[in-house]
């Protein structure tokens, strides 16, 4: 067993947990966090694909892809959280009317 296999399995599990959370949970923020877990899990699987036995250098292309993914996920999270706040404000206004 080398680190790549251990973390690869963990990444798959995190992806599964995130996917379940995104479709099965009711709370909006938790669904969003489920999607974020999915992205981290996918990142693990990609990075594991880039891993090589220590003296060899790892493959930099997946590393670059995952960094891009992290930033895109942050943008998506920020936009989704703004939508959640706005939706909540609108619902609160409806309740009051």
């Amino acid at each position: 067993m080398t680190p790549d296999l251990i973390y690869g399995a963990a990444g798959l599990a995190v992806f599964g947990i995130g996917l379940w959370g995104a479709i099965a949970l009711q709370d909006r923020m938790r669904r969003l966090l489920g999607l974020k877990l999915c992205s981290v899990g996918a990142g693990f699987v990609l990075i594991v694909g880039a891993w090589r036995e220590p003296p060899a250098a790892p493959d930099p292309v997946p590393h670059a892809l995952v960094i891009t993914g992290i930033v895109v996920m942050l943008s998506a999270t920020a936009a989704a959280l703004a939508l959640i706040r706005r939706l909540h404000d609108l619902e609160a206004a409806d309740d009051r009317a």
Partner: peptide, 20 residues
Amino acid sequence: SALAWVRLAAPDVALAEAAI
């Protein structure tokens, strides 16, 4: 996860995850 990425020889990713 940043620690795990350090272990997987991906320090660039670990830095991005640590900061973001």
